[in-house]
Amino acid sequence: MAIDAATVRKVARLARLAQPEETLEKLAGELNGIMNWIEQLNEVDTDGVEPMTSVVQVPTPMRADVVTEGGDPEVVLSNAPRRAGNFFVVPKVVE
């Protein structure tokens, strides 16, 4: 998979990263290097092998349906750059 400057621009935008235009080509080159390196994995024959999404082979732990957390807005809001009462306040977002 070849990554060009346009792809880098799009990915950066989706990740909300401000990437100066003049850095895109250089980044594309670096990312291509990384991708090529990872693509070596394609050399392994994985026909008929189920994709593995986790290396941990234990059943999913499940929690009981019991309230054990919350009830402390001060803790939750303690890192908020801006707050009003117990609300987080963020720059205006409009639909």
């Binding site: 929690r63 019991v66 309230v67 054990t68 957390e69 919350g70 009830g71 807005p73 803790v75 939750v76 809001l77 009462g85 117990n86 609300f87 987080f88």
Partner: peptide, 18 residues
């Protein structure tokens, strides 16, 4: 998470760190 689900609580009162 173990935070409560419900209607009518004050803002951010039913929020865990998760």
């Amino acid at each position: 998470s173990g935070a409560a689900v419900g209607f009518g609580a004050g803002p951010n009162e039913q929020v865990s760190l998760v």
